[in-house]
């Protein structure tokens, strides 16, 4: 696993083309290997913040520093490379390819990674699937998997390339309570074991509580941060 990276956000502002505020975060610090829940009502700008932290969205102002790298200042190709090397993403809707099996989905990064890294990514993907209780599944497609199983495949995908950072956007939103609790246990155990920096956007109070630190947004602004 890559060395964990701390996060520093300075003067971040994401605005629409006509200048309307989507989200503003004057200052945010997350230590390397730390965890953070981003909470708030719908439309608060939580996902936009996460996308800016992932380099999927270029902020109108400010800096997003992962270690020494200001992601906000990088061109699109460099941000993509940073994501490929350092960031694992987990989405609310799982976003798996139904035509591929568990290993095919979890090791998808091998398809566009340098050839010298492909075997390691595939091996890691198989390892994470095993740790998440999906080892040895022979189905050619994940189409028959339950929501909880699909999200675990997505978590294995996020970790297969040994990232330093895991960003999760509502990872339990599509799951029933039991599956959600199971996923939280798995995710936190894995992240703690690997020392990844984990930031999750969530409405799930249970997840937010277990992550310890919380940044509460409303109407695109920081309302409250419990970063102790």
């Amino acid at each position: 696993m890559a060395d964990p990276l701390p996060l520093r956000v300075e003067g971040l502002a994401v605005r629409t083309r006509d200048g309307r505020r989507i989200v503003e975060v004057p200052r945010l610090d997350v230590p390397a290997g730390g965890t953070l829940a981003v909470t708030g009502p719908s439309g608060a700008g939580k996902s936009s913040l996460l996308h800016a932290l992932a380099g999927l969205l270029r902020p109108s102002e400010g800096r997003v520093l992962w270690g020494g790298t200001d992601l906000a200042a990088l061109p699109e190709a460099a941000r993509a490379r940073f994501r490929r090397e350092q960031i694992g993403l987990v989405f609310q809707d799982f976003l798996l390819f139904d035509e591929l099996g568990a290993v095919g989905n979890a090791a998808i990064a091998a398809a566009f990674a340098p050839s010298r890294e492909r075997a390691a990514i595939r091996s890691q993907a198989e390892g994470w699937l095993g740790q998440l209780g999906l080892g040895g599944r022979a189905e050619p497609s994940v189409r028959t998997y339950s929501g909880g199983e699909r999200q675990r495949v997505a978590v294995a995908r996020a970790l297969a390339h040994s990232p330093a950072i895991v960003l999760a956007d509502e990872p339990t939103a599509s799951l029933d309570r039991a599956s959600a609790d199971c996923l939280i246990d798995n995710l936190l155990a894995v992240v703690a074991g690997e020392g990844c920096t984990l930031i999750a956007v969530t409405h799930d109070a249970g997840l937010a509580r277990r992550l310890g630190r919380e940044l509460r947004l409303a109407d695109g602004r920081v309302m409250e941060s419990a970063l102790g």
């Binding site: 999927l56 190709a77 993509a80 940073f82 994501r83 990064a109 566009f112």
Partner: peptide, 16 residues
Amino acid sequence: ARGLALLRALGAPRRF
């Protein structure tokens, strides 16, 4: 498109 966007989100370059 959503699947292709996912690839870009995961860090795949445009050429992929």
